Amino acid sequence: MKAIIDSLKSHSSTSSGVQPHPFWVMVRKEIADHIRSWRFLVLLVLVVLTFWGTTSVSMANLRQVVGNANDPDSLFLYLKLLTTTEGSLPPFHVFLSFLGPLLGISLGFDAVNSEQQNGTLTRIMAQPVFRDNLLLSKFVSALTLVGSLLLSLSLLMIGGGILITGVLIEVEELIRILGFTFLCTIYVGFWLGLSILLSILFRQGATSALTAIGIWLFFTVFYQIIVNLVAEALVPAESALSQQAILRYNELLLNLLRLAPSQLYTDATTTLLMPSVRSLGPITMEQMAGAIPSPLPLKESLMIVWPQLSGLIAATVLCFALSYYLFMRREIRS
């Protein structure tokens, strides 16, 4: 943080020439700190190795799935690179549902409490900067870094696919892959906002990190088990229910499961990367009658995925809004 303070001092003391805004000075310094930190480098290596492993498996099995008449998604070559698996490794978007929260938590669990423990928070606030710029710079810098990483991996996959197969990517595939990248960035941004919120609530970085990991494990592992146990205890056997009651029961169960961010992410990525997915909820045999197995247009897939995307954005904004409220009312001199 000494570099930030020196940059802010030079910015305030220079009266001539075009100077960058203090907010962007802090953003650039936060990005540089993340890039030089060992925890980000370790997670970067894990994400890159995971991407390389899943893409290699997809490339090796691409001939078996492309052109398959029983698969309506077989025409989308580059989407198959993100979804094809042979069973030894899950697809990349499944891996990212586990690595994404760890990436967001690692970038934000000590964003504020470490500054206060090191005594740099009061020194930064003594400079001509607004308090909210400090919090916003930490969120924007980490989210920019994550978005750049995921976009680079997606473009690398597209470029490698063109060099190996010689097939140009379609516009719809490109939009779906870019939408997948944006969705993954928002998903990581939720855990980043939650970890920043916990770094404001707790003074110790270890406490905020353990709390964030505990919340992630609860929603990833235990939440689905709890929902299923409660539903089985309160609802009678499905054989005693009518068809409409079973549909309402399954719809209620899915809505409860979608309170977990991981479920929203899974539903959204499945819809974007598999155009043949027509619905994320239970459907009757009458609704399936006469349906031809074919890919949905991009507009229809976006309409299906919009509630999940809105939920992730709303949860991210809520976490950051709570962080903003608590940080603006916090006494930083103690």
Rank of each mutant, 00 (worst) to 15 (best):
Lys9Gln: 04
Thr14Arg: 15
His21Lys: 11
Pro22Met: 10
Trp24Met: 10
Glu30His: 04
Asp33Val: 06
Asp33Lys: 13
Phe40Thr: 07
Leu41Glu: 15
Leu43Gln: 11
Thr54Val: 01
Ala60Asp: 14
Ala60Pro: 03
Asn61Pro: 01
Pro72Ile: 04
Leu75Lys: 08
Phe76Lys: 03
Leu77Lys: 15
Leu82Gly: 01
Thr83Ser: 10
Glu86Gln: 15
Leu89Thr: 02
Pro90Thr: 12
His93Ser: 05
Val94Arg: 11
Phe95Asp: 09
Leu102Met: 15
Leu102Val: 07
Leu107Thr: 08
Asp110Lys: 11
Ser114Asn: 11
Glu115Ile: 06
Glu115Asp: 12
Gly119Asp: 02
Thr122His: 15
Ile124Cys: 04
Gln127Tyr: 09
Lys138Arg: 13
Lys138His: 08
Phe139Tyr: 14
Leu145Asp: 09
Val146His: 08
Leu151Gln: 10
Leu153Arg: 04
Leu155Thr: 01
Gly159Thr: 00
Leu163Asp: 07
Leu168Ala: 14
Ile169Ser: 05
Leu174Ala: 07
Arg176Ala: 05
Ile177Trp: 14
Leu178Arg: 03
Gly179Val: 01
Phe180Ser: 13
Cys184Lys: 05
Tyr187Gln: 06
Tyr187Asp: 04
Tyr187Met: 04
Gly189Tyr: 07
Phe190Lys: 08
Leu192Asp: 03
Leu194Arg: 09
Ser195Val: 10
Ile196Met: 13
Ile200Asn: 12
Ile200Gln: 14
Leu201Ala: 14
Arg203Met: 15
Gly205Tyr: 02
Ala206Pro: 00
Leu210Phe: 13
Ile213Gly: 07
Ile215Val: 12
Trp216Leu: 14
Leu217Glu: 09
Tyr223Glu: 01
Ile225Tyr: 12
Ile226Gly: 01
Ile226Gln: 11
Val227Asn: 08
Ala231Pro: 00
Ala231Arg: 03
Glu232Val: 04
Glu232Pro: 00
Glu232Asn: 10
Val235Arg: 13
Ala240Gln: 13
Ala240Tyr: 15
Gln244Trp: 06
Ala245Asp: 10
Leu247Gln: 06
Arg248Leu: 01
Glu251Asp: 04
Leu252Phe: 08
Leu252Tyr: 08
Leu254Asn: 09
Leu254His: 04
Leu254Asp: 03
Asn255Trp: 09
Leu257Asp: 00
Pro261Met: 05
Leu272Asp: 02
Val277Glu: 12
Pro282Glu: 03
Pro282Leu: 08
Thr284His: 03
Met285Gln: 14
Gln287Met: 10
Ile292His: 15
Ile292Pro: 04
Lys299Ala: 07
Lys299Gln: 09
Lys299Asp: 04
Leu302Ser: 02
Ile304Pro: 01
Ile304Asn: 02
Val305Phe: 03
Gly311Ser: 02
Ile313Gln: 01
Ala315Asn: 05
Ala321Lys: 05
Ala321Val: 05
Leu322Ala: 13
Leu326Phe: 14
